[in-house]
Amino acid sequence: MSDLFKNKVHLVRMAGLFLVGIVAFVILRWWMVPKSFGEYGHYRGAALGEIASLPMHYAGRAACEECHTDIVAQRKGSPHEQIGCETCHGPLLAHAEAGGEPKPALPDSRQLCPRCHSASPYRPKGFPQVVVADHAPEGQCTACHNPHAPKIS
């Protein structure tokens, strides 16, 4: 061994150790990073197919409107016209696919309506808001308001 090299053997060994670390990292990366990672962006490409294959729960407004034409007529021009049916009634694909049976349960309006209409300084000015306990201490909101056309006639 030449003198020049003899004095640097430990450095070569340390460099070797770093190299082993880098190789181990490359192997780890190859082993741990999913093959489809980066296919479309900074995520696992295969995730798209997996998510798409998950069971569906929502039917969509168009499916509701095929049968419930009377409700479509009620909602026309009302402030709730743009709200999706399943926003209040919940996911109803099974109901739509089974041709209307079983009938879904009606939502509890005392729970549901205040989600949007309870008074809060964070809501826009002019948005209908009430302090529920003062406005209607008991009973369902639907006793006075028609949720599909929410104006007291």
């Binding site: 004095n7 430990h10 450095l11 060994r13």
Partner: peptide, 18 residues
């Protein structure tokens, strides 16, 4: 020590430079 025990002045001089 990475199983290498050369601590000659020359080797230590290399260490110092690095």
């Amino acid at each position: 020590a990475l199983w290498y025990d050369n601590i000659s002045p020359e080797a230590l001089a290399v260490d110092d430079r690095v």
